[in-house]
């Protein structure tokens, strides 16, 4: 990927909080479109976004957003980006339309334009009917939407969305994801979506940067990352001994096992061995295979592989 396609670049960025290294020599790029920033809690996702916003100053490294250096042009960058914070955030004592218009004015819009945009954006995020209500009376889902509205009001070129579906009910979550997807794919807004919810990222984003323990664990287009470097199976077994012992034998043979929410285990068999290798290992361990189904790699597999989760 050429740098000219990148909306954000980080070069050897390190951020430390006291003794903790939140970002460790991170070098990566975020291309145009929708990019997911994935990682477990504490991986450094929010720290990365806050560094790009200029809230946190790295101890070393260089960052560029929309071609501008974060260290030297933070204001010019903030004029062109929108930020939807992870936690509840609003300006106290204002109704929704005043709040969003105020944010527009802070971003440099003339007062009348800011008010007009506030109405439009509130309708867009689904708060049109509630726009004269005080933001403090909003439900969690509505607060998520108003945070998106304030990030959008000045029409940014790049949106940072930090866990946008946090605390939302399933219907609200689906609607929020639709909005995010629409912004990225139909409205030409570049966005970086930070989340630990894999289906959210998979649904809305074209590419992904996976973080773990302050480092980049994997990065690239989701489809490319999902390309199999072997085969994936769903496996259910019965054994008289400890099942973990069997999984240990699989791992020793170079296979990857990831537990799912259901009672099946996803097993990644590298190379050409396929099911035959799996059956051979089960037979050698005296384990009955009760269910074996070929599967397609998901972002979850990519994520689990990248961060080394079982």
């Amino acid at each position: 990927m050429a740098d000219s396609d990148a909306v954000v670049t980080l070069e050897n960025v390190t951020v430390t909080y006291g003794r903790n290294q939140a970002l460790a020599d991170v070098t990566t790029t975020f291309e145009r479109g929708a990019v997911g920033l994935l990682g477990p809690n504490g991986a450094g996702k929010s720290t990365m976004i806050k560094s790009l916003l200029g809230f946190v100053v790295p101890s070393q490294g260089r960052m560029r957003v929309l071609g501008l250096d974060v260290a030297t042009s933070p204001i010019a960058i903030r004029a062109r980006i929108g930020y939807m914070p992870e936690n509840d955030a609003h300006i106290p004592g204002m109704n929704a339309v005043s709040f969003v218009a105020y944010c527009g004015e802070l971003a440099g819009l003339p007062r009348t334009d800011a008010m007009q945009r506030a109405h439009e954006v509130l309708f867009y995020v689904g708060l049109g009917e509630a726009r004269y209500r005080n933001v403090e009376t909003y439900s969690t889902g509505m607060k998520q939407r108003i945070k998106l509205a304030q990030a959008l009001v000045h029409d940014p070129d790049l949106l940072f969305l930090d866990e946008p579906t946090n605390g939302m009910d399933p219907k609200g979550r689906d609607e929020m994801l639709e909005l995010v997807r629409d912004l990225a794919h139909n409205k030409g807004v570049n966005l970086i979506l930070s989340s630990h919810v894999l289906p959210d990222v998979e649904y809305t984003c074209d590419s992904v940067v996976v973080m773990d323990k302050g480092r980049i664990a994997a990065a690239g287009p989701i489809e490319a990352l999902k390309q199999p470097r072997g085969r994936v199976y769903e496996l259910r077994v019965k054994t008289s001994s400890d099942i973990e012992q069997f999984f240990g034998q699989l791992r020793a043979a170079g296979l990857e096992c990831h537990a799912t929410d259901e009672d099946v285990v996803r097993v990644f068999v590298p190379g050409e061995g396929g099911a035959r290798q799996l059956f051979a290992l089960a037979a050698a361990a005296g384990v009955q295979v009760r269910h074996l189904r070929p599967s397609v790699p998901t972002l979850e597999d990519v994520f689990a592989h990248a961060v080394g989760q079982d």
């Binding site: 204001i75 004029a79 105020y102 004015e105 802070l106 971003a107 440099g108 819009l109 003339p110 334009d113 945009r117 439009e120 954006v121 309708f123 867009y124 995020v125 689904g126 049109g128 959008l152 000045h154 029409d155 609607e175 639709e178 909005l179 629409d182 912004l183 139909n186 409205k187 030409g188």
Partner: peptide
């Protein structure tokens, strides 16, 4: 009709910088 179909318009107007403190003051 899905919410997103209600439209989002790109902003074509001008923006002015350096008057944010004035906005904070007048609003306050």
């Amino acid at each position: 009709m899905p919410i997103h179909d209600q439209g989002y318009r790109r902003y074509g107007g001008g923006k002015s910088a350096g008057r944010a403190w004035l906005v904070i003051m007048t609003t306050g």
